[in-house]
Design a protein around this nucleic acid. Structure first.
Lengths: 112, 112
DNA sequence: TTCTTATGCATAAGAATTTTATGTATATAT
DNA sequence: ATATATACATAAAATTCTTATGCATAAGAA
């Protein structure tokens, strides 16, 4: 209850941005980080996350590195060079979307 | 080209918000208004808009009124009472999403 | 020590929303 | 005449997400 929904299309950008900041992360870590950063408002489901990671990898935007910690598997993802470039584009797009929405929704707000 | 994409799920909220502001609008007018307000960044396609309007109407959030101007058909939509209440909710949800995204994407920004 | 919760991955079926491609029709500008 | 703008509509396909499963190990609670 009470958790604002995830707008479709934003997940990939969230993933890319987190990886840009954190260097490398594994799937479960991403779900927890998003929960933490948004105070529980956004919850990334596994059914959305893992296919998204696989697709980003297939597109050449992410590299994987498998590790075993405490006898449990972890797949660390990090941006490729193409991924870094694409992250810049996607973020610009998202910021543009946010600005557009603010113009529509609440022109009184300003971003600084 | 170069038009930033419409995040899925935001279209309904955009429609509701515009109707809240403008009182009543017809479909084509909505597409033009969004183009204008976002300086061409968001383009509402007809294939998305008309089904969305029909659905909002079916949900009881919109009322329709048909008019004929210059021998051309126009369907004016306006919020019902239920629509007005729902608009408040959807806008709150969208603002929450925007804030969450800003926390993820650029914590330096502030909304005032 | 058993049961639940947390950690960690994965996929498949279905739902929701959008894009793209059409189709119809009138008005206006070139 | 022809193209563009106005104005509606729907259907097929694509995209992206939710929900429901499934497997497996670790840690904490009862």
């Amino acid at each position: 209850m009470g958790n604002s929904k995830l707008y479709k299309g934003s997940l990939n950008t969230i993933i890319l941005k987190l990886l840009e900041e954190q260097g490398k992360m594994y799937g479960y870590e991403i779900t927890q980080k998003v929960k933490e950063l948004t105070k529980g408002e956004l919850k990334i489901t596994e059914g959305a996350l893992y296919p998204a990671l696989h697709k980003l990898e297939a597109e050449g935007l992410l590299d994987v590195e498998v590790a075993k910690v405490d006898n449990r598997l972890r797949k660390y993802y990090k941006l490729t060079e193409a991924g870094e470039k694409e992250t810049v584009n996607r973020l610009a797009e998202l910021e543009e979307f946010i600005r557009s929405m603010q113009n529509l929704v609440n022109p009184n707000w300003s971003i600084e």
